Amino acid sequence: MDSVKKTALYDEHVLAGGKIIDFAGWALPVQYEGLVEEHEVVRNAAGMFDVSHMGEVEVTGKDAFAFVQNLVTNDVATLEDHQILYGMMCYEHGGVVDDLLVYKFDQEHFYLVINASNVEKDFAWMVEQSKGYDLKLENLSDEVSEIALQGPLAQEILQKISDVDLSTIKFFYCNRNVTIEGVKCLVSRTGYTGEDGFEIYADHEGIVKVWRKLLEVGKDQGLKPAGLGCRDTLRFEAALPLYGHEIDQSITPLEAGLGFFVKLAKDNFIGKDALVEQKAKGLPRKTVGLEMEKGIPRQGYEVLAEGEVIGVITTGYFSPTLKKNIALALVDAKYGEMGSSLSVQVRKKVFPATVISKRFYQKNYKK
């Protein structure tokens, strides 16, 4: 673990008994008390994650809007100041460079939040695509720490130590000037769990103060630190994609079922032509939900129809909330009809699987 990066909260995780693993080159806790316990505390009260490994890129200048609009699949023109949208950066062939959040501070100032495993690749891609635009790109990833406070009690707990009325921060909006425990923070009503919650950005020293104080004031309401293990089960139940699973350079957003975030009516964005063509021809593959009575599906397991391999599991678990074996799978489109009977190769055995809705869990966002 000596060669991996440590977040500003590393010592807090060790003190709290976190089981530290190497995740995308970062020493982060996979769990503290246990995955299921932490999963349930987020669904029922509130949990707090260290997500300081995420990347942040600032875009400023006269052409900032035009550049970001061309960079991502979603329509940045719909954003108000301090509003956020989810989208993807695509290659010309339609595969995904990364998915990201786009924060609009104003027409000449954007803040892009990208995945930890892709920071260097993403930033290099942005620099290449920025040629010809009048703007400044700055990779702030090493300067910014971030925590995610998620769950139905998140607002109530955070409000105790915030100087801003958090009810004024709507879903997928942010406030750049929130003081928490004397620390100036960027706070957004976003998350990756399917629950209401906030993501809090601050400098390294400040984030430690915020983390400690939140655990102190939230203790009586059940707030606990949560690890990467339940972060994955929570996002999966809410059918939220993860780069390297549901999307990557070989999977298009349309195949991943993320067409809502791809605005083909936009004038242009990188990869648009390929995606327009793919939609016109018909998708060769589609992402579906699967349910299994027996056998737990895992990423990489083959999906079969009549003994032939027709797809692969992208994420699969025994769902802590639903108490079922479920999965997301990328399959040949003709086998993706709801109710279709398929099977999954689980090690040396084959178990039946049924195509179901990907809406495994009803999201509880505060609109």
Rank of each mutant, 00 (worst) to 15 (best):
F49W: 02
V127L: 13
K121A: 06
I251E: 01
A66N: 13
E146S: 12
Y133W: 12
L186Y: 07
T73Y: 04
K366V: 03
K131Y: 11
V76Q: 10
F49R: 00
Y173S: 14
D81P: 15
R285K: 15
S167K: 15
E38D: 00
L342P: 02
T168F: 10
D273K: 15
G311E: 05
N44K: 15
L215E: 07
E306Q: 13
L283F: 08
D2G: 14
D50N: 08
A274G: 07
R231E: 00
D81I: 09
C185F: 01
L158N: 03
A353W: 14
K170I: 08
F269D: 03
V344H: 07
N325A: 15
D196M: 10
A265L: 15
T193Y: 00
C230D: 06
F171L: 13
L186A: 04
Q221C: 09
D75I: 12
V276A: 12
E37Y: 03
T354W: 12
R235N: 01
M338Q: 15
H82G: 03
E37C: 06
L137D: 01
V127M: 13
D273P: 14
K358D: 00
F351Q: 13
K136P: 06
I161R: 13
K334S: 08
A265M: 15
Y103D: 01
C90L: 05
C185S: 11
Y173K: 14
Q150I: 08
V183P: 10
G94E: 03
W211K: 04
M48L: 07
C185A: 09
V68E: 07
N175D: 15
L304G: 06
Y103L: 13
H204I: 00
L140E: 02
L149G: 00
D203Q: 05
